[in-house]
Amino acid sequence: MSRFFIALLPPQDIQDYANQVKQYFADRYASSAALKSPPHITLQPPFEWADANLSLLETSLKEFASGQQPVAITLRGFSAFVPRVVYINVVRSQELLNLQADLMAYTESNLGIVDKVSKTRPFAPHITVAFRDLTKQNFKAAWPEFEKRQLDFEFTADKLTLLLHDGRRWNVKSEFAFADDGLILSQF
């Protein structure tokens, strides 16, 4: 069994920015746990999956992704889940909320993947920059510095990313492109 999760990853320049912020939290506030995964928006929280069935998982995700349209994503400012988590705020859009809900329903009905916690609370899209090992005291010190910090990025998410835990950190295992209607030529 291996641990996986499914996410949207921003383009490299935004990942670089987010990683700089994560490194700042590691250096300044002794919170390095967020460095153990690439910057991402979690759509399907971590789940266990049998290694022998990896091709089924990947085939299913490819099928799901091929039916999705690219989604415009806006990142604006920082926010927090008090008292331990600081994150880059992802503006909630109906397209993003629909994508996440559709993925959760698809993985449950087609793969039997169920995240009980996600069923009990609304989807809060975010890109974590500090969590778990950020002490309450360091959160109190860091939050005033970040709560008014300006940040504005926009990008188009055009693929799902499957991440695999190697025992130490999360790594990209595979990516699944969304449909690109721009390439479909109508026939007369």
Results as ranks from 00 to 15, higher is better:
residue 63 E to N: 15
residue 125 P to A: 08
residue 110 N to K: 12
residue 129 V to Q: 00
residue 104 M to F: 07
residue 70 P to W: 01
residue 1 M to K: 14
residue 51 D to T: 15
residue 132 R to W: 03
residue 12 Q to M: 14
residue 6 I to L: 13
residue 60 S to V: 07
residue 143 W to Y: 03
residue 187 Q to M: 12
residue 30 A to P: 10
residue 149 R to E: 03
residue 40 H to R: 10
residue 145 E to N: 10
residue 159 K to R: 15
residue 90 V to N: 08
residue 71 V to T: 06
residue 70 P to Q: 00
residue 55 S to P: 06
residue 87 Y to V: 01
residue 133 D to W: 03
residue 120 T to R: 14
residue 150 Q to I: 03
residue 17 Y to H: 10
residue 188 F to I: 11
residue 175 E to A: 05
residue 3 R to Y: 12
residue 121 R to D: 03
residue 131 F to S: 11
residue 131 F to T: 08
residue 34 A to R: 02
residue 38 P to R: 11
residue 117 V to I: 05
residue 161 T to F: 14
residue 166 D to S: 13
residue 177 A to E: 11
residue 92 R to Q: 07
residue 95 E to A: 05
residue 101 A to W: 14
residue 87 Y to S: 00
residue 35 L to G: 06
residue 169 R to E: 14
residue 152 D to C: 01
residue 180 D to T: 04
residue 2 S to W: 02
residue 58 E to R: 10
residue 26 A to F: 03
residue 57 L to M: 07
residue 168 R to C: 06
residue 68 Q to P: 06
residue 136 K to S: 13
residue 156 T to P: 01
residue 121 R to W: 08
residue 24 Y to F: 15
residue 85 V to F: 04
residue 33 A to Q: 04
residue 50 A to D: 13
residue 178 F to R: 12
residue 100 Q to Y: 07
residue 60 S to R: 10
residue 33 A to L: 09
residue 22 K to E: 01
residue 71 V to D: 02
residue 140 K to N: 14
residue 22 K to R: 13
residue 100 Q to G: 12
residue 50 A to F: 05
residue 74 T to P: 00
residue 188 F to M: 08
residue 106 Y to I: 07
residue 172 V to C: 04
residue 144 P to K: 11
residue 68 Q to S: 06
residue 73 I to K: 00
residue 35 L to K: 11
residue 43 L to V: 08
residue 133 D to E: 04
residue 81 F to Y: 11
residue 138 N to P: 00
residue 12 Q to P: 04
residue 124 A to T: 12
residue 135 T to V: 01
residue 153 F to I: 02
residue 180 D to K: 01
residue 135 T to D: 03
residue 183 L to M: 11
residue 130 A to C: 04
residue 139 F to K: 02
residue 156 T to Y: 06
residue 156 T to K: 09
